[in-house]
Amino acid sequence: MATGFTLNGKAVSFDGPPDTPLLWVIRDAQGLTGTKYGCGVAQCGACTVHLDGRNRRSCVTPVSTVAGKSVTTIEGVRGAEAEAVKRAWIALDVPQCGYCQSGQVMSAIGLLTAKADPSDEDIDHAMAGNICRCATYVRIRQAIKDAAKAVAA
């Protein structure tokens, strides 16, 4: 039986195995490659998407569990927080290799959407599931703070 859900605002359907991780549905079936494979066990955050607006690791999310729900990826994320985060990321030249950054950006947007003015502890907590092997963390932290200010302004 096909699984129907909303992807970046559009209705989509997947008729493969219902236990297929959402990550591979997004990448292989839908051809959206911004969401990355890093670990497959929800330990690195490279696959972070928004499920009904909240951060979710798509590599451990069976597609059957998102039936009827709304999935947003880095390609489709919109809104004041999203724009502010991306602008702050570019202004500080945050990315190095860039591979984890879609997940970092999605987690940061999720954080700012839930909490407009995050403290350092909030950032530590919200971003704890996103590994950056290039260790761009100094700039990630600053970019989140800059984005929060920009949204508030």
Binding site: G34, E75, D93, V94, P95, G98, Q101, S102, V105
Partner: peptide, 9 residues
């Protein structure tokens, strides 16, 4: 390479 590595492209 920063913008493309920020917006997933």
């Amino acid at each position: 390479d920063t913008p493309a590595k920020t917006d997933g492209s």
